[in-house]
Design a protein around this nucleic acid. Structure first.
Lengths: 159, 159
DNA sequence: GGGTGTCTACTCGGATAGCTAGTGTCCGAGTGAACAAGG
DNA sequence: CCTTGTTCACTCGGACACTAGCTATCCGAGTAGACACCC
């Protein structure tokens, strides 16, 4: 799995602690974790294309959450970065086998494919069951000073 | 996920239909699905290193299951090919952040990492709950002629 | 005929290239704010 | 003082190199069977 998923999740989490009308620069989000700014920008672009973030150009521009954290699941973020394809992609090798039929859809018929798909479905379901708001709440419960600390850091680094 | 996982799973399934004392050549297993023989051989080597297959060299040599299908889970095969590392590898970017501690283990402490790890655990659990024997039984129930058909094909292609 | 040594063909095993996709960087288009000038 | 036009710094967005890991291939080490030869 791509490294950008971790960056995207933490960046989205940081955005939940901001005023929703305020936009955050990719450069500042990157500086928070000492990440390469240009590359994080690329990942945030993907999130914007997926409708998770809203981006505005020019001065005072940047990224902000496109919808409330309750409506952003971890699966949304992962899918935006990794793409919609499944991790286990059935290439239907049964078709090339002796009893293979050209018209059959082995993604559905193949038992191996089904088993792998079912496992991946539980993974997706687990990720879809956790929203950004849940993560935010858990972090705030365990580390109550984290949000204010992050806000202060971003405020102190304001240009 | 690597393409070899699909090949490995189907090859192991074919091996369940063989007499346990008979070894199957990588070349013949590859010919069954028209796969590149040398590359499949590489994947089977990984399965052998993991203790899933037993390999014997020389004439009448090849691969066979190292233990009964009931004791080989899908997770075993996936892990053998993909390696033991997790798909989401937490790089602990929190350590580089403002409140980061050098001594903390963010793979355990980070809420994001926990959520991703939990999802991946359900995936692993689902894969670990399915053995090669289960797959074999399901295939034989849905396509009763499949085992004999495969056996005949391998027999007809015996050098 | 039976035993034995050699030979050969066959198989795995690891070392070796090629290629796609993830990683990282850069510069340009667009934009909104700030500023200066004029009414 | 207020309005308006211009300028300009700032930001995203996509286009361009670089790297790592997956894909694919090849040849060598080892082995088990077959064969020929000798007793």
């Amino acid at each position: 799995m791509s490294e950008g998923v971790e960056w995207a999740l933490h960046s989205c989490l940081n955005l939940t602690w901001l005023d929703s009308d305020e936009a955050m620069t990719a450069a500042r989000l990157a500086a928070f974790y000492e990440l390469p700014a240009a590359y994080l920008n690329k990942q945030l672009q993907a999130l914007a294309r997926a409708g998770i973030l809203a981006s505005t150009s020019g001065p005072r521009g940047g990224f902000r959450l496109a919808r409330p954290p309750e409506q952003i699941t971890l699966l949304d973020v992962v899918t935006a970065i990794e793409g919609p394809g499944e991790a286990f992609r059935c290439e239907e090798i049964l078709r090339k086998g002796p009893g293979g039929r050209e018209d059959a859809d082995y993604r559905k018929a193949c038992v191996v494919s089904q088993a792998m798909r079912r496992a991946e479905l539980t993974w997706r379901k687990e990720l879809a069951g956790q929203t950004l708001a849940d993560i935010k709440a858990t972090v705030e419960r365990r580390h109550p000073r984290a949000p204010a600390s992050a806000r202060d850091w971003f405020a102190s680094r304001r240009p």
